[in-house]
Amino acid sequence: MGSRRLIYLIMIVAVAAPILFGISQRPSRLVSAERMYDVIENVKVQPGEVAMVWLDFGPNTIAENEPQAMVMIEHLFRRRIPVILLSQYQQAERFLSRVPQTVARQLEAEMPGQTWRYGEAWINVGYKPGAAIFMQSLVNASNVSGFLGRDVNGMPISQYPTFASIGGIERVKVVGEVTGLVGVFDTIIQFFQKKGYRPTIVHGCTSITIPEAYIFLDSGQLNGLLEGIAGAAWYSEVLKNAHPSSDNSRLLVTNTALSAAHLVIIGLIIVGNLVPLFSRWRARHG
């Protein structure tokens, strides 16, 4: 077995061990996730007002974006804020239905007697092509319900009383964007606004785009941020503090496995730097 395959094996074992043995550690505190929690916790929503959550991710970033989408929607559902789910990214198709269904099932199991139903708690209006063209058309629409027209099942949105008469875009109180794609995120930042309306935007980003997302947090164009799996894990901890019966054990194990993988990477970087030094020293001193 070459050194390359040995490294692969070490890495897979390091990741698998915490998962196999169910080891979990408390995640690191992330201030940006707490900011997002405060935004969703404190937003005031009147009847007819909604949250709009864009799930713009596919299987390529499922690892980070799906847990983020889950905690974001869980919090919105707990607060009974009606959610419109949609996407600018074709490969998000399945997540638009799976994520809210899973969250609703979890919450119903946690709180018997309470229900979160499609059409009341959320609707899925599917994939929306056209990127910036669609976005600027949406924000200028005088009636968002009419503009969106039908949900992904071909059902008129007028069918769902909660979403039937939203009115102008000002009635969208929170905009959630979960993506690892910079271009898609930019479309929201650049076009989801109009004269006299700047929405509250919260964002779940993949780790790779964290450094870039911070500049929008600083400028106030973003109001809260979930940073990779760690962001989702910390957010779930904050949610658990407020709702002790919620279960975030799987996410914490994932986060711990990720931490183990990082230690291996840092170890490999150190060894990778020491080995050539040692070789040079040995060559020089026989």
């Binding site: 890495m11 990741v15 780790s207 993988a261 990477i265």
Partner: peptide, 12 residues
Amino acid sequence: STVMARLALLVE
């Protein structure tokens, strides 16, 4: 951050 993103995929 890039390292973290790649490792997250593997963990999943």
